[in-house]
Design a binder for these strands. Structure first.
Length: 159
DNA sequence: GCCAACGTTGGC
DNA sequence: GCCAACGTTGGC
């Protein structure tokens, strides 16, 4: 199967791209997703070798800041069973896990961050999930065309 | 901090 | 199954 592309949102105060770059083996497990649509993508769709835009949300400015790679496919999010974890879910049964995660590894930071405003102003991204009104998904598909547009935008000066 | 949009819960 | 209430997300 051809490599696919995704966008993962994270609040940088919780886990930033710099945190990923500094993590052991520059790798982390993407835990804490508690939304079924995003869960389905993590469990079923993200494959080894797929590329990921790392997006910072709830900050100024919100922006795509880096690229990562899926290095381990969906497996149970064990933080759901930890009563001390912020995302503890007592309804998740270890024999039939509700929540899944993947592992991602840092590939590189973008040469410059691409803010939401700049993405909105970029031709070819009109249908991007991130830019749709009311879109809140924290794990989103990105088309190959969108991926290429964004990488081309990165190479342009400005922003 | 505000609030629109969305997802989940639970009473009926 | 409907839908109001509630909680969360996330841009601003």
């Amino acid at each position: 199967m051809a490599r696919r592309y995704w966008l993962l949102k994270s609040e940088p105060t919780a886990f930033s791209f710099a945190d990923l770059a500094q993590a052991p083996d520059q790798t982390t497990h993407w835990d804490g997703v508690r939304n079924f649509q995003a869960r389905n993508l993590l469990r079923d769709e993200l494959k080894r070798g797929d590329r990921v835009f790392f997006y910072h949300s709830n900050c100024t400015p919100t922006a795509i800041v880096g690229i990562a790679e899926v290095v381990r496919e969906g497996y149970p999010d064990f933080t759901a069973w930890d009563p001390d974890d912020k995302h503890y879910d007592p309804k998740s049964d270890p024999d039939n896990p509700t929540w899944y995660m993947v592992d991602i590894r840092c590939v590189r930071p973008l040469r410059r961050r691409l803010s939401l405003d700049e993405l909105r102003a970029t031709p070819g991204l009109e249908e991007m999930v991130l830019l749709r009104k009311g879109s809140r998904l924290s794990v989103q598909p990105v088309t190959a065309a969108e991926w290429q547009r964004i990488l081309a935008r990165e190479k342009q000066p400005g922003g």
